[in-house]
């Protein structure tokens, strides 16, 4: 019966899960060349967002968005008093984190957002109806809806696909392929995590004591959203890179919110019953 329905509706079984793949972005190796940003836009044929000088170091694209799926930050860090002591220029290629517990995926009412066989979070463009709920759900401000009146895939949600099409063909994502310093590494997530731990130990041993990993299974930031399939080696506190200290998963408080709403609703129902009770008035 179910099989007949599946055949009738042309429903295919989802591909069997494979070993999860992801990105390890080592910001200590990033040179800010933005090759990842361009390679991503070229492979995915994303339009440019506009031509305006931001004045914020060499970052003129600002943030991730519907048509910017890799974005390189340029943090100019120096003492506020113009002394050049301890000054440094941090570069970081940001991307969708492909969270183990993805807020966007949970919020999606249509099932357009799915977990792929590679462990990544993917927007099915033929399903998304542009409800926009994934946009405020994401704790990292990654996913966005293309403008309804725009020329690019108007009114639907977009973000990094972890180059699902390239992975299908056994290729690594375009950004990792283009990265000249291996700041962006693509691979089996467990192997990358092991590699990251070694790299962190190495950097700490060399005196880079402010280095830390962001998005590992054991990190505090994994408390709600789980480990990140695109995780980072950072050289300062996450907030320096606009990353939340403990990214929130909306689902975690949802039962309480419903309960509070229900209590108010029941109280009102009770008041109504009393108000119209035959003896009242």
């Amino acid at each position: 019966m179910i099989d007949a329905y599946r055949r009738f509706m042309n429903i295919e079984a989802p591909p069997a899960p494979q070993r999860p793949k992801g990105f390890f972005t080592d910001t200590s190796l990033c040179i800010g060349c933005k090759a990842c940003e361009v390679a991503c836009k070229q492979w995915n044929q994303l339009p440019a967002d506009g031509n305006e000088l931001s004045g914020n170091s060499y970052d003129n694209t600002g943030a991730l968005g519907a048509t910017t799926w890799r974005h390189v930050q340029f943090v100019e860090q120096a003492k506020a008093n113009n002394s050049r002591v301890g000054q440094r220029w941090l570069m970081m290629s940001d991307v969708c984190k492909h969270c183990a517990n993805a807020a966007c995926l949970e919020a999606c009412p249509t099932g357009a957002l799915v977990r792929t066989e590679f462990g990544s979070v993917y927007v099915q463009q033929d399903i998304c109806n542009g409800c926009g709920y994934c946009v405020p759900a994401c704790p990292f401000g990654v996913i966005d809806r293309a403008p309804k009146d725009g020329h690019f895939e108007a009114g639907r949600a977009h973000k990094c696909t972890l180059c699902y099409d390239r992975q299908k063909d056994g290729l690594e994502p375009a950004c990792a392929k283009a990265c000249p310093t291996d700041s962006i590494q693509f691979g089996d997530i467990e192997e990358l995590q092991a590699k990251a731990r070694r790299r962190l130990a190495d950097l700490r041993a060399r005196g880079e004591t402010s280095a830390r990993l962001y998005g590992m299974p054991e990190s505090t930031e994994a408390a709600e959203v789980g480990h990140l399939n695109a995780f980072f080696l950072l050289l300062d506190r996450p907030e320096v890179y606009n990353l939340p200290e403990v990214p929130r998963l909306p689902r975690k408080t949802m039962a309480q919110r419903y309960a509070i709403s229900a209590v108010v609703g029941l109280a009102f129902a009770a008041l109504s019953a009393v108000a119209f009770g035959r003896r009242s008035g």
Binding site: A80, P139, G141, R237, Y241, P244
Partner: peptide
Amino acid sequence: MSDHPSPRAAELGVPAGYYDYPVVKRPV
């Protein structure tokens, strides 16, 4: 990693945050 102090920004006396870019996206 939680116990690891990452004091760079604090040492330099500069606030956290990437310029004034929002952390989350504005609802559409």
